[in-house]
Amino acid sequence: MDEQHDGQDGQPDGPGPVAAAEPGVTTGALARRLGVSPTTLRTWDRRYGLGPAERAEGHHRRWSAQDVAVVEEMCRLAATGLPPAEAAHLARKRRETDRPVAVPRPRRAPGRPSEATLERQRRGLARAATRLDAPAVRDLLAEAVARYGLVGAWQDVMVPVLHAIGRKWEEAGDRYVEVEHLLSCHVSRALHRGPVASVTAAVPPLVLACVPAEEHSLPLEALSAALDELGLPQRMFGAAVPVEAVAAAVRRTGPRVVVLWAQARSTASLPLARHLAEARWGVRGARGGPTILLGGPGWAGHTVRGALRPTTLPEALTRIERIYPEVTAGPAPA
């Protein structure tokens, strides 16, 4: 997936908040603002008629504020999954009406969407994030959650885009750090806007925590939001929780499940996981302890007796539901 440049079909990389340009903005300057190449702008002009409205013979092309607005509109529309030609056609209407055009709402397909549909949404989200277009990122995330549910949106849209942006960050050094931060912030907000079911009564909570020195907490936030939908009580402690704090939280709450997240092998703490796996509480003869769920690629190759190693959010939820039969059990027979 390429979030930075347009493909062979000339589809733009996504919407971006570009300030109204002063008269006479060059193609190179506009390309830098939008994050595309000058060749891409020339292609849009040739194919879709989105070039400068006024041109002077013998001079470089100049883009007025209205010209910039039309190109922005095409980017915004294309990020929703519209074909480039249709996005350009609607964007040109802005030049006539001088106001944004309503985006046609795609029909909701039954069942799991096709991979092509998901790929269009991923590309649109990645492009919007690359342009730092916060409103578009927010709307695209909300649409994904509404269409596929929280777990489906996380698994099929958010995670692939986060990974793609992360790879670009690694490949480009310090570039794209701001893109990843903006996207992560809005993913976190989208996760916490989901429905919250009534908490199942008299059920021991789960404890969710990142291991010490682990700052990547978004996967835990996704699990926390999914548990909210199930109505399971939890104690979410987030990123980089000190060993003593995790141990104290487990001791004080007596959880049935403890989830420890480690993104990198350098942060995975085997002593902490083994210590918690051996924790016991309760009266003599009825002592119990937690089931440990080791989440994240950091635990690869590590073994903790009795611990579970789910690799996806749906798998983690399935494991937890088995430990909490109260979640899926129907009402008691009369």
Rank of each mutant, 00 (worst) to 15 (best):
L232T: 08
R256K: 11
A248Q: 13
W44P: 05
D156C: 06
E221H: 13
S37I: 10
P38C: 12
E278T: 05
A247T: 12
H5A: 11
A69P: 13
A31K: 09
P15L: 06
D174P: 02
L41H: 00
C185R: 09
T26Q: 12
A300M: 14
E178C: 03
A209K: 12
S64I: 02
A85W: 05
V177L: 15
D98A: 15
E115G: 05
M1T: 06
A264W: 08
L293W: 00
V145W: 01
A164F: 00
I320N: 13
G14T: 14
S188Q: 10
A226N: 04
R189D: 09
R309F: 07
P23W: 03
P135C: 10
L30P: 07
P84S: 14
P297D: 02
P160Y: 02
R94V: 02
T328E: 04
G149D: 10
M1K: 01
V203S: 14
E22L: 15
G254L: 08
A316N: 07
G149W: 04
R131P: 01
T27G: 15
T130Q: 11
T27W: 03
L230M: 08
A245T: 14
R284P: 13
A126N: 03
T117Q: 15
V18G: 12
T80R: 10
R46F: 02
H302E: 07
T311R: 15
P195V: 10
E119N: 07
E86L: 10
V207N: 12
A197H: 08
A79R: 03
V246P: 14
D9T: 09
L208G: 07
Q11T: 15
G49I: 08
P325Y: 06
E215T: 12
G285Q: 03
A245I: 01
